[in-house]
Amino acid sequence: MLNNFVKSNGRSGGRSRERSEQETKISEQSQIRLTNLVKTYKSAAGELPALNGVDLEIYPGEFVAITGKSGAGKTTLINMITGVDRLTSGEVWVDDMPLHKMRENQLAQWRGRTMGIIYQSFHLMPSLSLLDNILLPIDLCGLYRNGESTRRAMDLLTQVELQDHAYKPPSAISGGQQQRVAIARALANDPPIIVADEPTGRLDSVTAESIFQIFLSLVEHGKTILMVTHDSNLAYRASRTLEIADGEITTSNLSYNERLN
């Protein structure tokens, strides 16, 4: 599954091929770097600290699982990395881009090209067909020509084995299928980084496993993946596991596979 994802990438084929050759080898230059990251929410009860001076480096091709209890700060952490929320202090760098200094519009454009985001509740556009859901980020970022973008979207749907449902609305398919469409959408602009917030949280174990296999396949093709999960079995199979508690990274362990390597 997803063997052709990178190869089918017409825009950055050279870069992807390089990654393919590197397989899962992790570069020495970090791709994501957080320095003394602090995020505090204001509420009626006062200030609630969500992240307390987090320092973190993630390298290209890593598959990082983020675990922790509810309210520990997992989602806040990935919201800082994807730029969907603003930090209180500190620095966030992704591929030499200072997210903490960028404006909302710059962030949106950058995110569309650099990050593929997958949510637990899928967040597909209910009024669009599956194909149009995948075409929308391509259209918004304008990286592909019209015919090329349709071929690419269809190809991505084929990769997630939903080509026969291309013109159906999201409500006509199952939760697992919707999550696969969300993954295809996240890959629409061939971003180097995929961020998934509990992508298997709403799925049964069989479907969750198939989604996880897609992630593994993506990592094999050089994508960097950050995945928030409560499932310790899945987390254990990632290349690195970060555990968060009370807004701080308490443990950063290499996974079973990495340890084997």
């Binding site: 519009n105 949106a108 569309g112 967040h123 980020p137 918004l140």
Partner: peptide, 16 residues
């Protein structure tokens, strides 16, 4: 609103 959020997530700028 939610759809606006999704579009922003996948790269839509404010003007778009």
């Amino acid at each position: 609103v939610e759809q606006i959020g999704i579009m922003k997530t996948i790269g839509a700028r404010r003007t778009q």
